[in-house]
Design a protein around this nucleic acid. Structure first.
Lengths: 357, 357
DNA sequence: TCTTAGCACTCTCCCGTCGAGAGTGCTAAG
DNA sequence: CTTAGCACTCTCGACGGGAGAGTGCTAAGA
């Protein structure tokens, strides 16, 4: 929709007025009147003049009136224009940066803890909903496997990814395997399969099984069996959502129907992942507002999100979800900073710090 | 408060009428009129007679009127009486039992997964909020420890409790320790400390450190150091809450203020744990309604909960939280069945099944 | 003595009205 | 091109009346 709008038509004065409307609306959550723009902008124009301009802006698709004789509210197109060319970013305060870095110290935190902390920080510092999508296991590169005997034929398989994600899986073997042999198998698998993705490993194992089933000895058979069961983690990306209740105080969620729709949206993880995935391409912060997307338009919400990852590899997305009327000047740099900090923390977990001595 | 009420005063007819009021209110969520009781009960009494009785019941503290000339609503005392002596339990349908048992199969599920599934089942089958409290780590009995080298000085410590709970903790050691030695240490600690609680183990280690620091050799020092860091899990009980959004459809949550208070209540984990802990004593299902407790009375909610555990050892509590107007006949047996099934599943995880061959 | 029909009373809820207030659009003059 | 002025529109809260539901009380009946 926003492509259809001819922004070239806007004079500097039009832009100034539109900006004032947006800023005021972000603060007040109410339709903005011509009078308030006239008073607060430094243009020295009367309300009547502002009204003429606002009528134009409405015609061009940047403003809407909830009803005749009400003030005006910015559209998604207006927010996009504001973000792209009318807004100066507000830097993340040093205090918040310190706070974030303290909470995302990579030492003694695995990736899941980092992701959880990130989600919480996003929510806490923006007073909106924080969302982080974790990478699925299929494309994960294996760092280490370990089998721990826990009782009888039950074995705990611990899988560590190269980016610090950990998964546990309890498996049942056909016969009891002594601790020493489990350790041999752990070592063997870690050494031989470390550095490959779980998908590659699974394919390899299936091939091995098909080819050599006949001449396999008992030890190899056990190894393959354990690997097949333990490394068979095909779970997709997970979504970590934090702070949904902070939005309950906002005026835009004063009616139950919208609250319900919001929680239904959060319950539909697959749809959330799909929405967040739109921000996977590129490397910077991307903003989805209203009409772009079903979920955001349904609720009049926006999504400010960016991908995170280690080196060239993108692992997932993180972002803030909340009413379109949000403080983009603050929120965009915040998402950016958290994305970089999380990426850095993940990179340090296993490669930096203690490794480079 | 309920102790102060003289239930002996109630004639069988009074009880019948009270029961009818409660049952009707549970279905309708509205104040119950004398006329509707007169029509639906089989007493063959006129509305006027019912009115007299209801006036008495109100005087005795079992009913209240939202306002004059409205029907009547049961009090917490009425629900308690209903549950204790007026209600026949409705058995959990065989279909639901099967569904539960399928979802709580102990094989290849660790305790955290079982707890998560239980919480979800509680919510799904009751259409209320499901809550499960996990045991804190301090009193947990160790089953196995395992150290996995992941990179440089970073070591992943995996702790498995005797009841199937698993925790991972990434620790940083002073120097790089070879994989083989880590495995020796894992074996040593598992063999020597298995069967003790983490608190006991920690005390023992501290004593060891104080006494023998001088004559410790390097290997022992490392072992103790790893044990001290890895087994230092003092996290308290966790609360797993599921299905808060299912309540949004209920008429009692039609105003935002109550929704907010409900979510604030869920955010205050410590208070939830405290409330649930009231149900730790005894072994059966316990019901807290309104006035008994600040959280339930604040929201006009009830808690139906029971402890779960393995053998003599109580591990935690599980229950259902929702508006006092809930279907106790269905919900109490459901909580009971889920409590037993979860306990059984946890018991089987490590002792049953594959162990007894 | 218990039950019940009858009736007056009370309270909620819905609906229409009304006036204030806010904001706009238009017009005509500067 | 700007702006003051004015009529117009729409929301919102207050007010009020009428319908409906339900009660409490009373007096008559079993």
């Amino acid at each position: 929709m926003s492509e259809g709008i001819d922004t070239g038509r806007l004079t500097p004065r039009d832009r100034e007025i539109l900006k004032e409307v947006i800023l005021t609306h972000i603060l007040s959550a109410e339709p903005v009147s011509s009078r308030s723009v006239s008073k607060h902008s430094h243009l020295g124009l009367s309300a009547a003049t502002i009204r003429n301009v606002m009528a134009d802006l409405e015609e061009w698709g940047f403003l809407v009136q909830p009803h005749t004789s009400a003030g005006r509210v910015p559209t998604a197109a207006a927010y996009h224009l504001f973000i792209e060319s009318m807004m100066e970013m507000r830097k993340v305060p040093a205090k918040e940066k310190r706070y974030i870095e303290e909470n995302l110290k990579s030492s003694s935190a695995d990736a899941d803890q980092l992701v959880g902390a990130t989600s919480h920080l996003l929510s806490e510092l923006s007073q909106q909903v924080g969302i982080v999508v974790t990478p699925g296991w299929g494309e994960t590169v294996l760092k280490a496997v370990d089998f721990v005997p826990v009782s009888g034929r039950r074995v705990l398989c611990v899988v560590v990814s190269s980016t610090g994600f950990i998964d546990n899986k309890l498996i049942e073997t056909e016969e009891e395997i002594p601790r020493a042999e489990l350790q041999r198998i752990s070592n063997y698998l870690t050494e031989n399969f470390g550095g490959q993705t779980l998908r590659q490993i699974r394919d390899q194992i299936l091939r091995l099984m098909a080819e050599e089933r006949a001449q396999m000895d008992r030890a190899l058979a056990r190894t393959i069996d354990l690997a097949r069961n333990g490394l068979d983690l095909d779970s997709g990306p997970e979504v970590v959502v934090d702070g949904a209740q902070t939005l309950l105080a906002r005026p835009e969620l004063s009616d139950i129907q919208r609250v319900r729709r919001m929680f239904e949206a959060f319950a539909d993880k697959a749809r959330l992942v799909r929405m967040l995935s739109q921000c996977l391409l590129g490397s910077g912060v991307r903003v989805l507002i209203g009409e772009d997307n079903d979920l955001t338009s349904e609720l009049d919400f926006s999504l400010v999100a960016m991908p995170y990852g280690v080196g060239q590899q993108t692992l997932g997305t993180l972002g803030i979800f909340g009413p379109s009327r949000m403080d983009y000047q603050k929120v965009i740099p915040l998402v950016h900073f958290l994305g970089e900090t999380l990426s850095r923390a993940l990179a340090e977990t296993f490669s930096g710090g203690s490794d480079r001595k």
